[in-house]
Structures are given as C-alpha cells and as structure tokens.
C-alpha cells in the first residue's frame, strides 16, 4: 500500500544526521499572518458557538479536540467563562454544551 517504497529503502544511506540546520529560505517573508479561519459543523447552536467562542481564539480550538464527553465539554465551557472571562449567560450554557457534545462528543463512559 505504500507507493513510495523504493525511495524509503534508501533511508539508511547517510549514517549521521547533520548538526547544522538548513538556512532559512523564508527569512525575508512579509510579517503577515495567513488569512483563513476554520469553522465548526452546522447544527442547532452552531451560531451561538461561533459568536461566543471565536472572540478570543479560532474555532479550531474546538474542532481539533478529541471526542470529549458531556462532562468534559461542560467543564470546558465553565473554564472559558470563569477563568478566561467569556461572556456566557447561564441559559446559554446548556445550548453550548448540547451542541458541543452532539458535534464533537464522545459517548459517556458506563460506570
């Protein structure tokens, strides 16, 4: 299944890795960050998540998480609110955690 087999067979040819890194060909780049921000899956509550959760960081903070349990997502939303000052009202908490558990959740572990 590895289409690149012949090239890989040559891996042992150089006995030692070089010490010095290659020169940096990008040193002259303009200091502008790339555009393009990931979004979240559509669904009920997605709009609220986009509005609430992209204020301080991009939404890939959410989309790159492993499947988390409802308890973990609830703790996460609480951390954003209590520790970092996200403005989330108490009636928004269940909407956010419901969406996050449905879209990015893991089944709760049986005890």
């Amino acid at each position: 299944m590895l289409g690149c087999l012949p090239a890989l067979l040559a891996f042992g040819a150089e006995p030692f890795v070089s010490v010095e890194p290659a020169r940096n060909p990008f040193a002259g780049d303009a200091l502008v960050l790339p555009a393009g921000q990931p979004s979240v899956q559509p669904g009920e509550g997605a709009g609220l998540v986009i509005a609430t959760c992209s204020q301080c960081h991009s939404l890939d903070y959410i989309t790159t998480q492993p499947p988390l349990t409802r308890a973990q997502w609830t703790a996460g939303v609480e951390k954003m609110r209590a520790r970092f000052g996200a403005s989330v009202s108490s009636n928004q908490v269940p909407i956010l955690t419901e969406y996050l558990t449905r879209a990015y959740g893991a089944p709760a572990k049986s005890p």
Partner: peptide, 25 residues
C-alpha cells in the same frame, strides 16, 4: 490519533507546518 487531521500551512519565515490553531497561531 483520533481527529488528528491537520492542515499544513505556511506562516511568515516558516515552511509549511502542521497547524493546530490559527488564532493565536
């Protein structure tokens, strides 16, 4: 590992690297 797919993105003074998050980088 599960949910491990990431884009390779070029940032200033960098070659394309594995992007975990965009903002902050």
């Amino acid at each position: 590992f599960a949910n491990g797919t990431r884009p390779l993105v070029k940032y200033p003074q960098k070659r394309p690297l594995i992007r975990l998050t965009a903002r902050p980088p």
